[in-house]
Computed example of a mutant assay.
Amino acid sequence: MKTGPTPPSRGRPRAFDRDAALDAALQVFWRHGYDATSLSELTAAMKISPPSLYAAFGSKKGLFLEAVDLYSRRYGDGARRALEEAPTAKAAITRLLMDSAAIFSAPAHPSGCFIVLSAVNCTPGSAEIAAALRERRTANEAALRERIARGIEDGELPPGTDAAALAKFYGAVLQGMSVQARDGARREELESVARAALLAWPAPPEDR
């Protein structure tokens, strides 16, 4: 019995490399910020269709938050190690500042700090995104404060040192370095900023 032609199979959507797509999304968000990044820019960079993006990540917000996690794993682990492994609080802050100067100015990715810059232009409708990034920055400042407080307990810093104020100061320095990097500051210029900021480090008790 003769049969007609077999109808074409719809098949499954073409698979894609989720990790590579997420990395591409990170680069776009890092360059433009959350609100200024369009869905078409994301799908073009990720080389996927909008339905595939939503199927894999749920939403633009879900994709962005995964990009934040990726950035933190890739670039934040060094900061955590600096605070945990350096023998003194000053050594930890020094390493953090110098490592940040290198990361913020590296040509392999957009300049500056993704966590700092991505929320600069957030609209009221993206309050949840702004809050998530603010929570990350607050946690980073808390880690600085805890390491400085440990330095005070160890006698590295004078007993009256205000750990919260010192942590906020160096957090502000890091944010300023991020903005300067986005404006084109080179690594050596950012390292000069870091060295100048370290002059504000309180002298050890025996030197007072």
Rank of each mutant, 00 (worst) to 15 (best):
A89F: 01
H32A: 15
T37V: 04
I103F: 06
L166G: 11
L22Y: 07
R80F: 02
P204V: 10
S100T: 09
D99A: 15
V179Y: 10
V193K: 07
R137Y: 07
D17P: 00
V120Y: 06
G78S: 02
K2D: 11
S111K: 15
Q175S: 13
Y170L: 00
G112K: 03
G11E: 02
I103M: 10
R74V: 08
E206R: 12
L70R: 15
A119S: 15
A101P: 11
E188P: 12
T88Y: 10
Y75A: 09
R134V: 03
L63I: 13
A92H: 08
R136N: 12
A15N: 05
F29Q: 06
F29L: 06
Y75K: 05
A165E: 03
A119P: 09
L65Y: 06
E141G: 12
A82V: 01
D69R: 08
A197K: 13
E153Y: 05
T6N: 09
P107S: 08
S192C: 13
A200Y: 14
A91K: 01
A44Y: 03
T94I: 04
L117Y: 12
G171T: 00
R186L: 10
R182C: 12
G112C: 11
D99T: 15
G4W: 00
S38N: 09
R136A: 15
A149I: 00
A67D: 03
K168T: 12
E128M: 07
I129W: 12
A185M: 11
E66T: 01
G184C: 03
I103G: 08
L144N: 11
L42Y: 11
A92T: 08
S118V: 09
K90R: 15
F64S: 14
A67V: 03
E191Q: 15
F64Y: 15
P7C: 06
A44S: 13
T43D: 05
A139K: 01
I129P: 12
E66N: 06
I148N: 10
T94N: 05
P107Q: 04
T3Y: 00
R136P: 05
L83S: 09
L42P: 09
T88I: 03
L22C: 10
R187V: 14
P204Q: 08
K90I: 10
T6A: 14
V120S: 04
A143H: 01
A119Y: 02
P124I: 09
T43R: 00
R31P: 10
V68Q: 12
A142R: 07
V28S: 02
G33R: 02
E66W: 00
